[in-house]
Design a protein around this nucleic acid. Sequence first.
DNA 1: AGTTTCAAATGGAACGTTCCAAAGATTTTG
DNA 2: CAAAATCTTTGGAACGTTCCATTTGAAACT
Lengths: 345, 345
Amino acid sequence: MYRKGKATIVDIADRAGVSKSTVSLVLQGSPLVKDQTSERVRQVIEELGYVYNRSAANLRRARTNIVGLVINDLTVPFIAEMAVGIERVFQEAGIVPIMANTAESLRRQGEVFQTMLEQNVAGLIVLPARGTAPSDFRPLRTGGVPTVLALRNVPGSQLASICADNRGGAFQATEHLLALGHRRIAFLGGFENTSVFQERLAGYRRALADGGVPFDEDLVVQGPASRQAGHDAVKAVLTRAVAPTAAFCFSDVVGLGAIEALRAAGMEPGGDFSLVGFDDVAEARYARPPLSSVAVNYKALGERAAHAILGMLHAGDRAMESFEGPVELIIRDSCFRQNEAFANV
Amino acid sequence: MYRKGKATIVDIADRAGVSKSTVSLVLQGSPLVKDQTSERVRQVIEELGYVYNRSAANLRRARTNIVGLVINDLTVPFIAEMAVGIERVFQEAGIVPIMANTAESLRRQGEVFQTMLEQNVAGLIVLPARGTAPSDFRPLRTGGVPTVLALRNVPGSQLASICADNRGGAFQATEHLLALGHRRIAFLGGFENTSVFQERLAGYRRALADGGVPFDEDLVVQGPASRQAGHDAVKAVLTRAVAPTAAFCFSDVVGLGAIEALRAAGMEPGGDFSLVGFDDVAEARYARPPLSSVAVNYKALGERAAHAILGMLHAGDRAMESFEGPVELIIRDSCFRQNEAFANV
DNA sequence: AGTTTCAAATGGAACGTTCCAAAGATTTTG
DNA sequence: CAAAATCTTTGGAACGTTCCATTTGAAACT
């Protein structure tokens, strides 16, 4: 283009007959510069194909326009959706997101935090890896990086979190099954070392308690949030002395596995066994039978998290309160009304 | 910590009784420093909780350790998978990926390119938005940023690309249908303004030609890669004078929609209509009937793309040649052998 | 002892911005 | 018309690294 190497602010200044300070002001859209001048500068910028050097700006400035996005598992569709929501908000705010996938590895998560600090991120949205401890955030805390947790909470971390209303969702789902007359309701999938599990389990127990149904530990089967796990969990739970007639599944994927296992056992989901899932993934609607599920607007949750960070950046260190996104029980055809219980009413 | 603000390389130097140059060398792992010295420096670094300032380094250095990742649609599961593959390779190589989702918007893609340039990225992996023209890459070209295209090609862009063997996959799928005796084979879904469509269509036509079956434009129905589109396309194609007995679907999602539409029309996919999809998404396996599909290892493709960029960074401007990832036809139960054609042999 | 060789450490000038204090214009006011 | 007030513009010192050219120190030769 011009001279050797890339054009800098000084080259622009020379060509436009102003000082580099003025050019800098123009670039920042300062109202201090006369329109006529800034117009001329802008023209030269165009002419020389100048590109702004953010590394230099970041060095001088206190804060960067970079925000880190630490994701536990990007291959989960609704997490990707959430990432998209976050990304969109940032893009509009002129924030550049650095993304890292930890694949649920704590070691990797630690490395990622380090990298984020080195990049001098202005803030951080973290979807914590399974088993994250409050102390894992220490480097961030000493680095003074505004941080928001999303999707999963880390109790004791003192960090604000943006999560779905897991407790409420599980409560609604379980209540729905109770209302259909079910009394033996299993809880399938998920691991107890995540806050999401704890919360959903709490909602489930609360609904049982409200419905006067005793909690039976034997009806809770932990496992990964996978199809296979749903399959296995159903098989396990059907062997109980008094088998359940319904299950609240930790996630839709678990529920889909459950559907298969029920069929394999000669039962008909929605006909003689009721299922409710969580997340309302696209597949739930298309399953046979269509799976009732607790819908979460993950994209909105992502946007909320992004706004939370923006707020923290703007308002300095003002502590942000946590937020629980609303959920909605979507009723499809995977449940049936149980007669004996019906007679009980 | 120490002093006011964050510790810098100079603080380390003072405390360790060496010069900042030495500290810099230690940070870069230079063999020029005596072990004893570097050990001491490292200790002080630990002590003061120093964090490296990459902005400063980037300013001084010619190249950054940042690589941009421009994604057309992160919510597509296999694209997310690909992103994970890329991210993993970069992480191991000490490269920090900046991710941006363009959501298939050309305007956004342009903005994203600009941002990437400002961040002074060392390289760029682009999954081009639909309808991207070669000229859209001009800013990158003049910026001298090594760029690799992934998943979709942009003919005329002169850029290396890492794509699936779309032509070969479509060829295999169509050949499979031909071998089962089908002669009227539809091509459903996708838009002709993408290279992926062009390539798959070419593979399909080639197989038809090889099998001595004339190409019939009426059997090609374009549409988005969505369930609904698959549904609509089947309905459209069943009204043709001589209806097809099989379809090659642009993607599995289209194929799943096709399954529904066939059922709705009183037909049985895998029984009296054959379907083959593309991508081999998880859902294909669990569909009723399980959908035959052309499998692509998207994660491997992502890793390949990442390695391509690493290679370009390392080898300077050495032009990289394009790569087509192998595909594999996975045969499930969505196809049947057609008798009349069978008699023809 | 003097010279050469090699390893290890260092000073200082970049890199391209931002931002402060201050100077120069221009307009308003008394 | 001078003084005051306001609007624009501008040097120059940071910011925290890297890297070149050099110096220093020690060991290995003549």
